[in-house]
Design a protein around this nucleic acid. Structure first.
Lengths: 244, 244
DNA sequence: CGAGCTGTTGACGATTTTCAAATTTAGTGG
DNA sequence: CCACTAAATTTGAAAATCGTCAACAGCTCG
């Protein structure tokens, strides 16, 4: 097969750029295979992408091979507002699964945003959202041990997918390999493996066949010190706008 | 003394909000003492602050006492654009030294930004700058050991202060305690102490009396894997604007 | 079926934390 | 200025956490 198959588990409609539907901001659908790049460090990307299906990751590689994934782009996420205004991509973004996305010219997006308050607010919110997640990850990496980090990561992923309508009651997709998890959590793959086994033996989660099931949300949340407030930026800001 | 003395080592003029000078965006100077807060988690701050002198830190506290500092506000920095649009402060911001700052009403700033492209770009840039730094810190915390983390932190601080004109050839202020450094680097104060001693014995740095001197920049940079590209966002964006 | 990625296991080593205490430095009030 | 107190730095020993290395099993995909 020339192209990896993309098989969503459920019929699911991703959110759409606020202006893309109404004002017809031109965008083109395209697909990427696992390990292909949406941007490389040092480039000046001339397109922004909205992920429709699949997961992408922003990362930095040290020249001795150490890799840290510094951000995840899930379906509905915009990749990446920080390339606006002609900025260079400081870090690379790669497809962690096969990906389907829509691509919009950076210049079109910029000129549209200058006149379109809704789009501007969407970009601003998306940026703030990314920043809040990063700040929370700093706490994770700086102050938590392996089981706390992985628990938090799973809590966050489930919550983000859930609020995008891409999770069911207790389970969601989890296409990341243990190597990906290690590069997210700042651990070695070996230690991720052992910690996941511990979490399974504690009846916290099931994780197999690229599918996560959360058996005991309350315990997982407590172990992770997970407080979803930092993820509320997107929705909370909307309700404020509505109230004002 | 009712108020901590603020004694800058050198005469130094902080950068000014692009519109504050020309369009007379109203702002009031004020001071804060060590350990006083600029914002507390959960609040809806109604002012933005530009730091004029002193350092502030954004942090999160876990209820068992672990603290992670997730951002530093140095002289010239804006604290914090993410409170615009009525957003709540997810994390707290506290003065790490006595502080002198200017305060501008959030609503004034918002309405001004809607009409003032230069201010808007300034806010956007400041936000991107913060995000790039955070992404780099994720690499630090996730993939580097103690000496690499501390070296990187010192490289970044020196570079930021230097580009603000607040450093001389080989040295700059370093008002952080070893406890602060620990909460920045995700280490214990004890281990910070031992690692700093190692760095001193390697003739990399001198650090005493709240003053840092970098003895061997090239070695420090190499150990830290420090590549200042991620700090170039502010200036690079300007030169691009100028070129376009 | 064969190659390569992914997950798993064990033994061992390195880094970092914890705990407790001593020492130095800085700040405060007399 | 000195005395006193609190904060900050330093030290040592033992333990916990996590990483490294090496090997093997299972699975997927061409």
């Amino acid at each position: 097969m020339l192209q990896d198959a993309i098989q969503p588990r459920e019929s699911w409609a991703p959110p759409v750029l606020p202006s893309a539907g109404t004002d017809h901001l031109p965008s083109t659908a395209f697909t990427l295979r696992h390990h292909q790049h949406l941007a490389r460090s040092g480039e000046r990307p001339d397109h922004l992408h909205q992920i429709l299906q699949g997961w992408a990751g922003r990362y930095r590689l040290l020249s001795d091979g150490r890799r840290q994934i510094t951000g995840l782009y899930l379906p509905g996420d915009l990749c990446d507002p920080c390339w606006l205004d002609g900025g260079r991509a400081v870090q690379s973004v790669v497809a962690l699964t096969p990906i389907q996305a829509s691509r919009t010219s950076r210049r079109e997006m910029e000129s549209q945003a200058a006149n379109d308050v809704a789009l501007m607010k969407f970009l601003w919110r998306q940026t703030q959202f990314t920043q809040q997640i990063q700040a929370e990850w700093l706490v994770n990496l700086g102050r938590k041990n392996a089981i706390e980090r992985l628990s938090h990561l799973l809590c966050e992923l489930y919550t983000r997918l859930s609020s995008a309508g891409a999770a069911d009651q207790k389970s969601c997709d989890m296409p990341l390999t243990q190597l990906d998890l290690a590069d997210l959590a700042g651990l070695t793959p070996v230690h991720v493996n052992r910690t996941l086994q511990e979490m399974r033996s504690m009846q916290l989660i099931e994780l197999q066949s690229r599918r996560l099931t959360i058996m005991d949300w309350e315990s997982l949340r407590r172990i992770a010190w997970f407080d979803p407030a930092y993820l509320a930026v997107r929705s909370a800001r909307d309700s404020f706008q509505a109230a004002a």
